[in-house]
Every structure is written in C-alpha cells, then in structure tokens.
Design a protein around this nucleic acid. Structure first.
Length: 255
DNA sequence: ATGACTCCCAGTGGGAGA
C-alpha cells in the first residue's frame, strides 16, 4: 500500500501534472494541499477518470485540502473538530484499515506575528485531536505540509534560518510534541541522502542550487512502524514547467 | 535589498506563500 502527500499550490494550475503523476505513481491515497478551489470547482470528473475518488475541503483563493483514494473512504472529517477555523486545512478519512489525516499547517509568516500565534493555537488543537484519533485508531497516518523543518539537517542553511519561520524552537517543539503522542517520522526510519528537501523557493534558482527545506512530512502511528517499507521524496515534478514549489512525499506500507 | 517567483483576485497593483 502506498500513500503520498503533495502541496500542489493551486490544483487548477497543476491538474495536468497531478494526472501525469498519478499515472506514474498509482498510490492508494494522495493528500493534496493548497488546492485553492471551492468545492464546486473541484475537478471531480478528471480525477475519477484517473481511477480515484476525491474527498475535498476547499475555499476560495487560499488553503484547501483533498484526499484522493483508489478505494472507498469512510468517516470523512473536515477541519479539526471543536476548533473554529475559517481556513480549510484538514481532511481525514478511514480507508483500508487506516485512519489518514491530510493537513496543511499554517505558514506562520514571522515569529512575532498574529499569524504565528494562530499557527501555535492551530497546532495545540491539532495535537489534542490527533491524541484522541490515535487512541481510537492506532493505525493512523498524519501527512501533509507541516511548514516546520524539524531539525537543522532539514534546512539548507541552518545558520541563516536559525529562529526564522519554520525553524523556531516553538515550532520544533510542536513537531516533537506530535511525535510524543506516539507518531514516527517515516522519512527518518531510513537512511536518506543528506540535503533531502521537499520545498524549494521559486526565487533565486533555489531548486537548481538545491537550497530547500524538508517541511512536508508523513508521520505514522507506532503501531504501523513495522509495516513501513520505504519513504521517499519525488523531486521529479519540481523539474516540470510551472512546477509546484513542493515535491510529493511517498510512503510504502507492507500489506 | 523589506528583492528575486508564482498564484490569486483584481483590474495595470497587492497579499500570501515559505
């Protein structure tokens, strides 16, 4: 079984690339972030023609998440239950014996901003909810664009980024607090090449210079750890014309 | 360089992203 997450930075723009990618990587489930589409504009027909059904939770212009699945999805949850949020950032479903949460974590803008305070409130709410979900569904996967680089080795220039957004001690503590619930960073279960990133700035030839961050993650419940066979970043879509600034992350689970 | 690029909604500019 294969799952993946990809921040597509506008599904309307990236739909052809998404369909190409699914044809090359027929994963069982794909979490999308930054669809930037209201639900009435979601490209259902094209995605169904590709063999997927789609759960979507969108809004105009910003944010927006979706969960594409080959099999049936049940118990769909949109947003963090009990957390009032105008921003569409979370979608969850049960499929094939797994509880899958796809999330687009807030960016946070700058450590002293109101958006950062919102990011912290959002992370607190997410953690409380994931704790309960994990208790109910030990076979849980939390994946998406976390907008957190967990460690210095996840940053191309950790000195320049020290204390900056994605790298603050507060954000990193939030990431560790998620792990402390009983989740594992699937990517770090395996030996990985140094300088492995999931995001490269559009500016400054950052991709060509491999100046990026690892901010897209797949966390799995401890119960699933023995089943994790691989976790990889697919850099190829970043080489497309008009690419997303993020690359997909793929995890493979033993049946 | 408080930049650079891309997307969106707008409407020939500005917010947001990371």
């Amino acid at each position: 079984m294969k799952l993946a997450t990809w921040n597509v930075n506008s599904l309307a723009v990236r739909l052809p690339q998404l369909l190409d990618w699914l044809a090359a990587h027929p994963v069982d489930a794909l979490a999308l972030q930054e669809t930037k589409l209201t639900d009435d504009k979601f490209p259902h027909a094209e995605i169904e023609a590709a063999g997927y059904s789609a759960q979507r939770f969108g809004q105009k212009t910003y944010n927006g998440v979706a969960l594409l699945t080959r099999g049936a999805a049940s118990d769909v949850t949109k947003g963090i239950p009990g957390f009032a949020d105008e921003q569409a950032r979370v979608i969850a479903a049960t499929l094939g014996g797994l509880r899958v949460i796809g999330a687009y974590f807030p960016n946070g803008q700058a450590p002293d901003s109101e958006k950062f305070a919102y990011k912290m409130r959002w992370l607190d709410a997410l953690r409380d909810w994931v704790r309960a979900e994990l208790a109910a569904h030990p076979r849980l996967v939390l994946m998406g664009d976390f907008n957190i680089a967990p460690e210095d080795r996840d940053v191309y220039d950790p000195v320049a980024w020290a204390g900056q957004i994605h790298c603050t001690p507060e954000e990193r503590a939030q990431f560790q607090a998620l792990l402390a619930l009983g989740l594992v960073d699937a990517f770090r279960l395996f030996e990985q090449a140094p300088k492995s990133w999931t995001w490269w700035d559009y500016r400054n030839l950052a991709f060509r210079k491999n100046q990026g961050l690892r901010i897209d993650h797949v966390l799995v419940g401890e119960a699933l750890r023995p089943q994790v066979l691989a976790c990889t970043i697919d850099k190829l879509p970043r080489k497309n014309e008009r690419p997303s600034d993020h690359a997909p992350v793929i995890v493979e689970l033993a049946p």
